[in-house]
């Protein structure tokens, strides 16, 4: 039986489509038996869906470094 910690890792990987088929199967079995992880897994999936819905954007680290340099130079 997969432990809750391992199940959480698989669950997180699954949010980024990086869980293997076998991993997903293990997760399914674990969720079948563990209620806490089921709740966590549902919330995690919800977080993924709202992050997609919000169409998040961010500046890359590189752009931020350039911005910092510009501000340092100008100030």
């Amino acid at each position: 039986m997969t432990s809750c910690e391992k199940a959480a890792v698989i669950c997180n990987k699954a949010q980024y489509n990086e869980a293997s088929f076998l991993d997903k199967l293990k997760l399914r079995f674990h969720l079948f038996a563990c209620k806490n992880c089921t709740v966590h897994s549902e919330k995690n999936a919800k977080l993924t869906s709202i992050c997609e819905k919000a169409k998040l954007r961010s500046l890359s680290e590189q752009e931020k470094v350039l911005m910092k340099e510009f501000l340092k130079k100008e100030s």
Binding site: A8, V9, N12, K13, Q15, K43, N44, K46, L47, I50
Partner: peptide, 23 residues
């Protein structure tokens, strides 16, 4: 990396529960 992702996601769910709707 996955540990950090896990902590970040758990904290985010908690934070959004307060600032947005129930997750």
């Amino acid at each position: 990396l996955w540990v950090m992702i896990h902590r970040a996601r758990t904290a985010l769910v908690g934070c959004l529960n307060q600032n947005w709707f129930e997750l």
